[in-house]
Amino acid sequence: MAVSGLVINIGTRGSPLALAQAELTKAGLLAAHAELRPENVTIVPIKTTGDQVQDRTLSEIGGKGLFTKEIEEALIDGRIDLAVHSMKDMPTFLPAGLVIAAMLEREDPRDVLISPVADSIANLPQGAVVGTASLRRQAQLLALRPDLKVQPLRGNVGTRLDKLARGEAAATLLALAGLKRLGRADAATAILSTDDFLPAVAQGAIGLEIRANDPRVAALVAPLDHPLTTIAVTAERAMLAVLDGSCRTPIAAHAEVFGTQLRLRGLVALPDGTESHFAEDSGNATLEGAAALGRALGEKLKALAGPNFLA
Rank of each mutant, 00 (worst) to 15 (best):
L262F: 01
K69F: 15
V129I: 14
P215A: 05
R137F: 13
L301W: 00
L148F: 06
A143V: 06
F258A: 14
E280M: 15
V257D: 05
I46Y: 00
A18G: 08
A303G: 04
R145S: 01
G204S: 07
L142M: 07
A232Y: 01
P152K: 05
Q54H: 07
L182T: 10
L301V: 00
L124D: 00
S282M: 06
D111S: 13
K88T: 06
T132C: 06
S86W: 03
A83M: 13
T25V: 15
L262Y: 00
L75C: 04
P16Y: 06
V150R: 00
A185E: 15
A232T: 15
D281T: 02
A200R: 00
P215H: 04
E299H: 00
A34P: 06
G131Q: 06
D51V: 04
L179C: 05
R295Y: 02
R265H: 03
L174I: 06
H85L: 15
A305D: 13
D55H: 15
G183F: 07
P45Q: 11
P223S: 05
I191V: 15
A290S: 14
T172W: 00
T159M: 12
V3S: 13
A291L: 04
A305P: 08
A83L: 04
D89M: 02
S276N: 08
V112M: 06
A185F: 01
L113E: 02
K180H: 10
D111C: 07
N123H: 14
N213L: 12
V257Y: 04
L182R: 12
V157A: 07
L94T: 05
A128C: 05
K47M: 07
A177N: 10
L267H: 05
V84G: 08
E39K: 02
A83G: 10
Q203H: 09
G273V: 11
I114H: 03
A27S: 13
A175W: 09
A101L: 02
A118E: 11
A187E: 10
T12A: 15
E73R: 13
V233W: 12
A235E: 00
L98M: 09
G14I: 09
I71H: 01
A311C: 10
G155Q: 11
R154C: 07
M90R: 09
